[in-house]
Design a protein around this nucleic acid. Structure first.
Length: 550
RNA sequence: GCCUCUGUAGCUCAGUGGUAGAGCACCGUCCUCGUAGAAAGGAAAGACGGAAGUCCUGGGUUCGAAUCCCAGCAGAGGCUCCA
């Protein structure tokens, strides 16, 4: 509700024409009031009758300051663009009139009419005042997300993610993942693996800020071409954006000092968190999110180095995908209609990508005109459990950013040359990749990736102490262990562990205590009895050796 | 962003205008145990008690709304776009 109070020598008004259906009944007669406080009042959406009391208090306060005893309550719809419905506004005004009458001589102008009016406002400092009266803010309540599973396969990562306690979503942060402890273990295992492989390949890991100034996004072109998708904020009189891509950060590190051809290729890897405000209808579990963790890298190199670098990346992708047993499809996308740069440069870049694929004897689908506006790209697509394909790895040649940011190096000829950039990811996004991985394994992750590798069960209360010792020993050997010593039937505990898809269930009962052995049940298999602890440990260590996987 | 659908206890759901429910999970007491409690059959260790809900949110219709209507939010499928 908004009001404008005018301390007047007089006001004259006359209803001319009904403005709405159900306007207050009145005569088209001129009224004049002298020495009055005119309260122009607009009732807005969400206003309720509880505001009457607040309004009266405001009017009383102003009236006493200007020492005025006559009030003209004047319905005036023009102080706001979000009006309350007429019935409600009218009711609130009537109530206000009634309440004011206890303290003042009150006149009310008719509601719902076009009125002509004339007034003379006194010129003193308090003669014109405006106030905004709002309802008490409602307490915010948090709600959970209800997933409509009717069209989802039971193997869908959203179902498995909650059943296996890996990750979830919350309405307060749409399109952003809440990682549960077990999900973080999985994520970190994947990242550790990724780091090791990148060290081998000569990458240097960097980390750049989330929040960067408009100045930077202006240069990169994102402000002009990608602003719709960016989360903006401001602080200290400057506009900032959450980064939607990692490239500018890496570029700033490249630009830090003069670069020599001897430093190239320079490979900067970054597990960068980026935010992209995607259209609301496209979000899809972990597959399409607002907050993306990209396993990004930017390779700064010469034109001659492009082909070899692209081949190195493809080999790395193949090596990593092979560990998970993914089948994938490769696409090469070329110059779109809307593009920057000369045709010669495009042809050279497309050739580098195509040659790399041909030299490695890989099949690929050609997507003419589907490249990014700044350069051509190779994409790797992996299928989810519903047969949909998702782009994961991507390799993009870029000659746009190097020019925008004037990225130079000194060549052997002692001249300045513009560097080339390759943008690339392997997983694509950690979120999407883990989503696909979850469906790919149907939640039954291989031993080295399982958030919980072994669950140790006690058969009866008598066996808890021994079971504890065995669990402790396995933990010290570096395995991820859970225990279940609850006093319920063994069947029940076995079933619970099976449903959690834990690779090994170890049961300790009286027989095991007597023979100093373990009963080991591998996931989905019959139990094996009489296993020696040391043998079990040895077997586990063999199975988790990553070198063997590659 | 557009079209269609969904939203009731931690989970799965029933309730369709008249006092908010069940199974599982959770907590408590007692009792029990040899590898799922999964379709059928066989077999069977469960029993009793307790706690748990803004019926997504806000309006409207109504004497009365979880239920009907409108708007919004979130989610799902599809389109489009992307990692």
């Amino acid at each position: 509700m908004k009001i404008l109070t005018l301390h007047c020598d007089y006001i004259k008004f006359k209803p001319v024409k009904e403005a709405i259906k159900g306007a207050e009944k009145t005569e088209k007669k001129e009224t004049i009031e002298r020495e009055c406080l005119v309260v122009l009042t607009t009732v807005e959406e969400n206003d309720n009758e509880e505001l009457v009391e607040k309004l009266v208090e405001n009017i009383k306060e102003i009236a006493s300051k200007v020492k005025c005893k006559k009030i003209v309550l004047y319905p005036y719809a023009h102080l706001s663009s979000r009006l309350a419905r007429p019935e409600i506004a009218s009711k609130i005004l009537e109530k206000t009139e009634k309440a004011l009458k206890k303290h003042f001589d009150v006149k009310k102008a008719p509601f719902g009419w076009y009125k002509e009016f004339e007034l003379k406002c006194k010129g003193h400092p308090l003669a014109e005042l405006s106030r905004e009266i709002t309802p008490e803010e409602k307490k915010e309540k948090l709600r959970k997300i209800i997933l409509d599973k009717s069209k989802l396969s039971p193997q869908d990562h959203r179902i498995l993610g909650s059943r296996l306690d890996l990750f979830s979503f919350n309405e307060v942060s749409p399109g952003c993942v809440f990682w549960h402890p077990k999900g973080v273990i999985l994520r970190n295992l994947l990242i550790n693996f990724w780091r090791k492989e990148h060290e081998k390949e000569g990458y240097k890991e960097i980390s750049t800020p989330q929040l960067m100034s408009k100045k930077l996004w202006k240069i990169s072109g994102h402000w002009d071409y990608y602003k719709e998708n960016m989360f903006l904020t401001s602080a200290a009189n400057e506009e900032f954006a959450l980064k939607p891509m990692n490239c500018p950060g890496a570029i700033l590190l490249f630009k830090l000092k003069p670069r020599s051809y001897k430093e190239l290729p320079l490979r900067f890897a970054e597990l960068g968190i980026v935010h992209r405000k995607e259209l609301s209808g496209v979000l899809a579990g972990m597959f399409r999110v607002w907050q993306i963790t990209q396993d990004d890298a930017h390779i700064f190199c010469t034109e001659e180095q492009l082909e070899e670098e692209i081949m190195n990346i493809i080999r790395l992708i193949q090596r990593i995908y092979c560990v998970f047993g993914f089948s994938y499809r490769i696409e090469l996308s070329t110059m779109p209609k809307e593009h920057i740069g000369t045709k010669e440069k495009w042809t050279a870049a497309e050739k580098a990508l195509q040659n790399a694929l041909k030299k490695l004897k890989l099949e690929f689908k050609l997507n003419p005109g589907e490249g990014a506006f700044y350069g051509p790209k190779i994409d790797f697509h992996i299928k989810d459990s519903q047969g949909r394909e998702w782009q994961c790895a991507t390799i993009q040649v870029d000659f746009f950013m190097p020019e925008k940011f004037e990225l130079k190096y000194t060549g052997k000829d002692n001249k300045q040359h513009t560097v080339k950039i390759i943008h690339r990811t392997i997983f694509g996004s950690i979120e999407r990749f883990i989503g696909i991985l979850t469906e790919h394994y149907n939640g039954a992750f291989p031993l080295w990736l399982s958030p919980v590798q072994i669950r140790v069960l006690s058969f009866t209360k008598r066996n808890v102490e021994t079971a504890k010792k065995i669990a402790e020993r396995l933990k010290q050997e570096g395995f991820r262990i859970e225990t279940d010593f609850e006093d319920v039937t063994l069947d029940y505990k076995i079933r619970e562990a099976e449903l959690q898809k834990i690779p090994y269930i170890v049961v300790i009962g009286d027989k095991e205590e007597k023979t100093n052995t373990l009963a080991v049940r591998p996931r989905n298999k019959k139990p094996e009895f009489g296993i020696k602890l040391e043998d079990f440990i040895k077997k586990l260590k063999e199975q988790t050796e990553i070198k063997k996987l590659l």
